[in-house]
Design a protein around this nucleic acid. Structure first.
Length: 339
DNA sequence: ACCCATGATTTGTG
DNA sequence: CACAAATCATGGGT
């Protein structure tokens, strides 16, 4: 410290100044009148400032601030600082929009978490649900409203957190800016440097935001798999659908393998997908075969039903009520020809 | 809480 | 790839 002081003093042609002179306000006042000694003097005072009491320092600070050489010295110091330390860091300053965060943003937008408020959000959710499931139009209103409620909850949390971060960020930025501005009266801090500082703060906060976005994405994914995964939201087909399927099954008991066209037809009639029809027949065949006895009653029922339907074209009266027993004998068809 | 029915998925085969 | 068989996971009745 002393060496530096002496060196700086020497450079500005102020070799003769002693420590005693520096601390003395009178000597300062005296020296302020001598232009050629100004810079060295100011530097001396700056160097000595840490040794002083708070009041003294405050007074000295004020004196320095008002000094006519101050602006020039300040800008010189800023320039030096700019050229030395900060230029190294300044190179990798501007980074392009982070691809990672863009991905997350896109996903959140697609899920209806970010983007427009309430109305649009639920529409987006419904769209997402439809896109994901290819869901049967049948029922599941409860499912969707539940899903939407959860999604809205996630979105609310997301937005409030985001707002909190943004607020904290701007608060912090303001604080730092004020601090730096205040300090720039006594310390060489250029506006450029403040800008850079702000950028650094924003980067920090945006990395926090990314974490928020990431965890929100995860939450949405979990919610999605929980609600939209068909396996979990299994609903029994409605009565009419099972009736149509059973009708087909028992009326084609000798060969219960609907063609692709037949499957499509059935799917249409039952308001389910073709693959659901395939699943149904697969399950039905295996379960029927496993325990024919158990399905006997059902088989009879549908055999009668089709018979009634066929007969009803001509006359309803004759077959009208025969709930009796077309029992065990009628349609027992061993699946000999099944695959 | 339990059990069975049932739709969906996984695995293995031709 | 369609299918059978085994298995999973839930719905719904008791």
């Amino acid at each position: 410290m002393d060496d530096q002081t002496r060196m700086l003093a020497g450079l500005t042609g102020l070799g003769g100044l002693s420590q005693g002179d520096v601390g003395d306000p009178d000597s300062v006042r005296k020296q302020l009148g001598q232009p050629q000694q100004d810079i060295g003097d100011i530097l001396q005072q700056i160097m000595a400032i840490t040794d002083e009491s708070l009041d003294e320092a405050q007074a000295r600070k004020h004196a320095l601030n008002c000094h006519r050489m101050k602006p020039a010295l300040f800008s010189v110091l800023c320039e030096i600082k700019e050229k030395t330390v900060l230029s190294i860091r300044g190179i990798q300053d501007e980074d392009p929009p982070d691809p990672q965060i863009m991905r997350l943003d896109n996903m959140l937008l697609a899920e209806g978490v970010s983007g427009p408020e309430k109305g649009g959000g639920s529409a987006a959710a419904a769209a997402a649900a439809a896109a994901a499931g290819g869901s049967p139009g049948a029922d599941g209103g409860i499912e969707h409203s539940d899903y939407r409620a959860k999604l809205a909850q996630i979105r609310q949390i997301y937005h409030s957190e985001l707002e909190k971060y943004e607020q904290a960020c701007s608060e912090f930025t303001n604080h730092v800016m004020n601090l730096l501005r205040e300090q720039s009266r006594t310390r060489p801090i250029s506006p450029k440097e403040i800008e850079r500082m702000v950028a650094i703060i924003h980067r920090k906060f945006s990395s926090i935001q990314m974490q928020l976005k990431q965890s929100t994405c995860e939450a949405v994914m979990i919610l999605r798999s929980r609600f939209l995964d068909a396996r979990r939201k299994r609903r029994n087909f409605n009565k009419q659908a099972t009736e149509v399927l059973n009708e087909y099954f028992y009326s084609h008991l000798s060969n219960p393998y609907p063609s692709e066209e037949a499957k499509e037809e059935l799917a249409k009639k039952c308001a389910i997908t073709v693959s659901q029809v395939s699943n149904w027949f697969g399950n039905k065949r295996i379960r029927y075969k496993k325990n024919i006895g158990k399905f006997q009653e059902e088989a009879n029922l549908y055999a009668v039903k089709t018979a009634v339907d066929a007969a009803s074209v001509s006359a309803q009266a004759s077959q009208a009520n025969s709930p009796a027993t077309p029992n065990s004998g009628t349609p027992c068809c061993m699946p000999a020809s099944w695959k």
